[in-house]
Structures are given as C-alpha cells and as structure tokens.
Design a protein around this nucleic acid. Structure first.
Lengths: 228, 228
DNA sequence: AGCCTAATTTAGAATAGCCTAAAAATATTT
DNA sequence: AAATATTTTTAGGCTATTCTAAATTAGGCT
C-alpha cells in the first residue's frame, strides 16, 4: 500500500504506535490518560482523536473503557516499529550516528510512505534482526525474533554474559554506558555484589571495572551464552 | 537549525521550493497562478498562504504583484533542493532504485528535519555533485557546481557527446530512455538529421541506433568532452 | 477613456488536530 | 453505601490549511 487516499496521517500513526506500546505492557487495553501521557497531549484531545479514528478500524473504542488494537491496527503498529528500527540501524551502522542520537530522526523517517523503500532498505542493511539498542526488528510479515535475555541484575557473582539490549533508551543513560564502554556485544562479568543497595561490581570486556547501581543493572539486558 | 519552534512546516517548505523553481525560469517573480499550478492547489489558497507566510520573511509579497524570495528564502529553497537530490542519489546508488522511481520518495525525505543527518548522508555518499538525473546538488553552503552542457538537439551531424542530464523528469520519458539504454554517462553520436521534423538518428554507446524526436532531443543534455 | 478578460483577492466555510474548563462517569475510601 | 478522588468525556474555541464562489484589480484592446 503506497500513498493511498485513505492512508493514516503521521498523527494517526503516532496514536496507533502509542496504543500498541501501552497495550504490550498493560495486558490488552490502553486508557485515555495513558495515551495522552505517551503522546504528551491532553486527555481531551485523545478522546477526540479516538472517536474519529475508531471509524478507521485500527482499534476498538468504548467510552470510559479505553482502547485495544484490531489486527489491522496491530499490523500497522508493527510495520511502524519495523521502519523505525530499520532506520535506526541505518543511521548507526551506515551514517555513523551514536546510539543515543537516532531516536528523533527515526521518528520522522518512519512516517515516510513507501513499501518499496523499506524493503529495499532492509535488503541493503542485510536484514538486521536487532536495532542499535538491541530491540528486535520485525520482518516484513511482522514477526519479531525473540531472544532469551535476562536483566544484568539477575546475574550472580562470578557469572559472565554478553550485553544484548537496554530497557530504557534515554540519552543520558546511553551516554553513561558509552562512557563505561558498555555497548551491544560487550562481555560483562559480575565480580561482587553489594547487598546494601543491590549494586554490582562489574568487569567490562576483561578490561576495566565499574560499580553499577541497581537501577543501571536492571536496565541492561544480557545473554549468558552468545549465539543461543 | 534543528527542530526549532519556528521551523517551517512541510507545506511552507513546498511553497518556498515552488517559488524558487518558478523564479529561476521567470526572471525574478512568481505569480499566484503559477504557484497554484505548481502545487496543484487553488489560487485562493495560495494568496492566503502568501499573506501569512510573507511575515516570516522568506519572500516579498505585494498584492497583485506576485512574490520573490529573500536571501533567507533562497537559502531555505537551496537546502531543500540539496536534501532532495542527496536522497535521490542515495536511493539510486545505494538502494538500487531506478531513476524514474525516486522523486516521490525524496519529496517526503527532504522534509525530515536534521542538519546532522544531511551532512552525514552527504559524507556517506562521498559528496556527490550531481543527482541521478544529472542535476547539480548544492553543497552545504548552497553553491551549485555549474556544468557547461548543451541540448542534444544542438549537436550537429557527426558530433559525439556524453549524456549529463535530462530536462524533464517525468516517469514515461525516463522509462523511454531506459529502454533505449540511454542514461547519465551514455555516449551518443549524431548519425543524421531529418530536416522535416527535426528528429535525429543517434548511435548509442557505439552499439544500437535510434531515431529521437525533436522533443526527446531537446530534453537530453549532453557535454561534448568528458571531464570539462 | 472605457471595456473586457484574466488574474488575483476576499469572504465564508470545511477539516484535522489541538486546547481549557466544566460536566459526567467510574473508582476508591471511609 | 455515601463521599471523595480520579478519569474521561463534552462543550466551545483556536490555528493551519484547504476549498468555492463572489468581488476586485490590472493590463490589453478599441
């Protein structure tokens, strides 16, 4: 579907994506307030939009009950995530952007309408499975490659693992990791554990050592063995 | 300038670009009707827009007199053309699009707001000077690399030249050239000239022969010697 | 100098998306 | 179950962009 009469606008796409992200966590339905918070807009605007948009069958909306996506809506959301993550991959791998700089640009690029573009981009990038933050990129059919991963927080003293992703994507956190030379693929080993505040002493790539707070370690996803 | 409060909207950018293109041909000013035709909108909408937009100082507007760009406007238009042509180059050279498919996609991509993006894209593409249709890509300072070129129509019988560009960019014309295996860089030689309708018999890359109509030959730009 | 036509502008209205303030419904506490 | 707090919706309004139809102006022709 390429540039049709009935294409969703960028704003509509943002709503669908927000609903998708919220319903992924909150089993099934998204509240008006949650959507408003996610899009930094008012609850009144959201109600307005939901009423109009629900006619397009991307989701079911019932007054005071919140919304949940239809298959059509879920498909659209998945394709948007696919586009977003492919563009992020492009920006980092090809244009040498840092992983903390790409979100806003990808947010714009994901709204470009052309199926052919995204399929060609995907081929050009050699069908990447994960974006620069380790998040899975759905394929053209919308399937995500699920990976077994645990939070660094759950790694015991003495255990080793490789970084495969991050939970939060905000710039300060990503820059902090850069500083520690922690990136996707970095090998980490838990040296010791401070029970008092749940922080951990970590050996980074058999090289440097750092103490990571509870908050930091829950935000880092690792995998115990590579290629599994 | 990156995503400011006072950024021009996509629509505003389209107006500036239209005015730029019209004033390039029609020494200096663009009429309301010309802008309307260029943007496929009504003259009334254009008047409306011009009145509001002229406050942003991209151009001078005087009732019933048409508009002409200020330096600020000309600079914006040039940057938009830069973005458009760089993206076209990317689409053809990296993603393997055909030269007749890229316009609409580039039209969307050019509105993405990020100075850093376009500079990194430029570096990644190795600072191309011409887009896939042979049109010059302005550099970051807005300077175009001007090339001496003539219309194929002005080539005399027996003369040889290399294709460097096309005047019209519409899909059927470009596909017609593809069919004839005429592209940027193709060597052409005028075999004979039919006085009756000004068509020409052409030898293409020392290979095939075709008759090109007057219309076709005026639409092809060539250069007599390469690298000059 | 006046008329005609084409170009341009004004007037009035529609739509998408947003807002604030007030009202209504739902959820939570007591 | 009543009272209170929270969430959601409605009402009314704003701006950007577009439209059609009507009015105005400019420029050319007699």
């Amino acid at each position: 579907m390429n540039q049709n009469y009935n294409m969703p606008t960028s704003t509509e796409e943002d709503y669908i994506k927000a609903i998708f992200k919220i319903t992924e966590r909150n089993q099934g339905t998204a509240s008006t307030n949650a959507v408003a918070a996610h899009l930094s807009t008012s609850a009144a605007s959201v109600t307005d939009m939901l009423k109009r948009l629900s006619e397009k069958e991307y989701f079911h909306y019932e007054k005071y009950k919140g919304v949940y996506l239809t298959n059509k809506g879920r498909e659209l959301a998945t394709q948007l995530i696919r586009k977003h993550r492919l563009w992020e991959y492009f920006l980092v791998e090809k244009l040498n952007f840092n992983w903390d700089e790409v979100h806003d640009i990808a947010e714009q690029l994901e709204h470009v309408k052309s199926d052919k573009l995204i399929e060609k981009l995907d081929s050009y990038l050699d069908h990447p499975k994960y974006d620069p933050h380790g998040d899975p990129i759905p394929n053209a059919e919308g399937k995500f490659t699920i990976r077994t991963q645990i939070s660094l927080f759950n790694l015991a003293v003495g255990e080793e693992a490789v970084v495969v992703g991050v939970k939060e994507h905000d710039t300060p956190f990503l820059q902090y990791l850069d500083q520690l030379k922690i990136n996707i693929g970095t090998k980490l080993k838990v040296i010791s554990q401070i029970d008092f505040d749940h922080s951990k002493e970590i050996l980074i790539d058999n090289n440097s050592q750092s103490v990571l707070s509870h908050k930091a370690s829950t935000n880092i996803y690792v995998k115990k063995r590579m290629f599994s």
